[in-house]
């Protein structure tokens, strides 16, 4: 069964996308990502170590030929910064993909959706494939699509919180209206959270802390791989409706 995720003609092998932050070292990063089966990895854009140009680099461990590199604009609180980081990311990398973040608040890391919308529109016009990180707001999701977003990435819960999907009903509404892929980004804590996102019908899940912060990141990465696959299969299979009362599984006919 062909069930590939496609965004603007780019085919993705995996519906699990993973971040590369917060790992103990690059070796652990590489092992966890391998175990996750993800073919998309997110990265941040930061100053190069100019005092030691030969120092180890993330891309020594994450082969850009094997993985699609998705740069983010994490840490950007203004439209200007988000645009600057996006343009630098495109120049440093090989694709037009950008995970657009315009952060509005330090404590929650919730997005500044007004700035996000503005930046999405500008970058889409510049030919970027914009994947904006936003709140789980169906109206905002629609506005982002109108502004040129190639996919919309609503949060499950605050970044790194591990709270799981706080508002599955909003995610469901976003999915019903969606004309682009919907990727839950941020806030999942464990495999069941990922499975729930996929069972709702999300096209993919992007996570970082849930794996990197687990006691055994490699084992959690594998758990997440299975959760995405199980959730997707369950979604495609079509779950039974929820009912208040029982329906017997064994027939009555033939009973003594």
């Amino acid at each position: 069964m062909d069930d590939k995720l496609v965004i603007r003609g780019i085919e993705f092998k995996s519906r699990l996308w993973v971040g590369t932050g917060k790992y103990k070292d690059f070796k652990e990063t590489a092992r966890a990502i391998e175990a996750s089966g993800a073919d998309v990895v997110t990265v941040a854009v930061r100053r190069t170590n100019i005092f030691d140009g030969k120092s180890e680099n993330l891309l020594d461990y994450i082969d850009p030929k094997k993985y699609k590199i998705l740069p983010n604009t994490a840490g950007c609180y203004t439209v200007e910064d988000a645009l600057r980081y996006s343009r630098l990311a495109r120049e440093a990398g090989v694709s037009d993909l950008i995970k657009l973040e315009v952060i509005g608040d330090e404590k929650t890391l919730f997005p500044d959706n007004i700035g996000l919308l503005e930046a999405t529109e500008i970058l889409a016009k510049e030919g970027f494939i914009v994947l904006p990180y936003t709140t789980d707001d169906p109206v905002m999701a629609q506005r982002l699509v109108d502004a040129g977003a190639a996919a919309v990435m609503p949060l499950a819960a605050p970044i790194g919180s591990g709270l799981g999907i706080r508002n599955p009903y909003n995610i469901k509404i976003i999915l019903e209206q969606a004309k682009v892929p919907i990727i839950v980004d941020a806030g999942v804590g464990t495999a069941s959270d990922v499975a729930i996102a996929m069972e709702l019908g999300c096209d993919a899940v992007l996570l970082n802390t849930a794996i990197a912060g687990a006691e055994d990141p490699v084992a959690m990465a594998e758990a997440m791989k299975h959760a995405v696959m199980a959730g997707r299969l369950a979604y495609k299979a079509g779950r039974i409706p929820r009912k208040l009362y029982a329906t017997a599984s064994s027939q009555i006919e033939g009973m003594l």
């Binding site: 932050g21 917060k22 100053r47 970082n208």
Partner: peptide, 10 residues
């Protein structure tokens, strides 16, 4: 002048 590269991030 700024020289940037990719680092770990989510």
């Amino acid at each position: 002048m700024e020289i940037v590269n990719f680092v770990g991030g989510g």
